[in-house]
Design a protein around this nucleic acid. Structure first.
Lengths: 240, 240
DNA sequence: CGCATGCTTGATGGAGATCAACGAACGTGG
DNA sequence: CCACGTTCGTTGATCTCCATCAAGCATGCG
């Protein structure tokens, strides 16, 4: 049965039922889905295509340096469009699953055709990419100048926006940590030990509570936001 | 005459004469340029629009933390499409010029219309964004795990790809450093002192030569590439 | 049980931020 | 021409912080 399940093509591929995908015209949807396939991945597996939509789980673009240093340069969650096509550069980095994930794999040539013929799909692509850019610029700002402590606070807010973090309720300050510590570390550019210490420190300062290992409750959201935005620089002698 | 020059609208706006802009259909070009304006910026000035094309100079998305830390999250050079529109998030960061620059300012609503009506323009947008993503993922990988030494080597290769670095000749290993040290520092997430030290160290190791303050000649390109790709980790006690 | 994986805590050292100072280049204006 | 200011780049000394190394738990699984 597992074989039956994991064999792609047995399930009819569908688009996520939310913006911008549910707003596409019927002809566009059927055009796009005609060559699309459903795919299941477990942690560590690499996605087969450069263009796909995440239905569930978590994925990342992984890169490895010669001496083993590992970087997760982009995180993707349910609903995200992943478009790794580019015209100028060679392929750099692998798209891997960080946990059990579901993907809607799109055919690259068909995508090019569809965005060409359906202006609503082209708009959806451009809009999605705009959001991804905003996320990446946030992330770059984190990496470039923030302390590990601030990065941890920032990434918690990022997880807060993920679907399924707290049953879709925006008001709830309970956050599901959706990926492993090691992946958080490779994403925010520190070591897992530092991630652990940062979380524990936030807990000791009563900014967060940790009812379960993979769940965080934000006690003081404004304080956390301030920390995430740069409220905890490394201390200098002048201020002492 | 300067007044005459810097007054926008006096010059007929034109698109850059290279891919993907020179491949657009005439109707698309005229549609797009009808509401476009030419703009000159000097260092520090902020661009007026969220959508524009860089004709010359250098720009960056600048962000400032509460305690004064400054980050340049994205660099743009001649030929780049800058699209800071997004649907989900609030405006974060300013688009500023790092040196005297020329811009083709596009009207946001007109752009939305044009990408909707002209599929070749939509493709150009999607393609440009794909390239920007690749650059940003490279940059994230630099910031997340590389040493300042490696980051400096990496950013030199980035400058190597900028137009005008060496008279457009790809073979030439003479690189024009197009922005100030302080901007390099804020881009790669270190302090100007560290930038300076990294450059001098590369020079001392005979990997680069510095004929002029703002020009670098790569003596050993393969070695530099290896450093940029992670060949200079921070040393550990084990290997000693 | 043994073994693996994931998370945490502790001790140590090195790398880069910090602070300070200087030199070079570029304007001013007299 | 020089005195003067500013800006940019560089160099040196000191100190903080995070990576590193190591060890300890907890859990899951054969």
């Amino acid at each position: 049965m597992d074989v039956f399940q994991s064999c792609c093509c047995t399930e009819t591929p569908v688009l996520p039922d939310h913006a911008p995908w549910n707003g596409l015209s019927e002809s566009c949807k059927s055009d796009l889905l005609e060559t699309a396939t459903h795919s299941y991945l477990t942690r560590g597996e690499e996605a087969a295509s450069d263009v796909c939509i995440v239905l569930s789980g978590a994925l990342a673009v992984e890169r490895e340096l010669s001496d083993g240093r590992r970087v997760l340069s982009t995180l993707f969650h349910a609903g995200d469009l992943i478009d790794l096509r580019r015209s100028e550069r060679i392929r750099q980095g692998r798209l891997i699953a960080l946990k059990d994930s579901e993907l809607l794999i799109l055919d690259q040539e068909r995508v090019a055709l569809c965005t060409d013929q359906h202006s609503d799909l082209a708009s959806a692509f451009i809009g999605q990419q705009g959001n991804h850019f905003a996320r990446m610029r946030d992330h770059v700002a984190d990496l470039a100048s923030k302390t590990p402590f601030e990065r941890m606070a920032s990434v918690l807010f990022e997880f807060k926006r993920w679907p399924g973090s707290s049953g879709e309720k925006k008001e709830c300050n309970s956050i599901q940590i959706p990926i492993l510590r090691i992946d958080i570390a490779d994403y925010i550019g520190v070591k897992p030990e530092t991630v652990s210490r940062a979380i524990r420190k936030l807990e000791k300062e009563r900014r967060i509570a940790i009812p379960e290992p993979d769940r965080v409750f934000m006690i003081d959201v404004p304080a956390m936001r301030q920390i995430a935005n740069g409220g905890r620089p490394r201390q200098s002698r002048q201020h002492a």
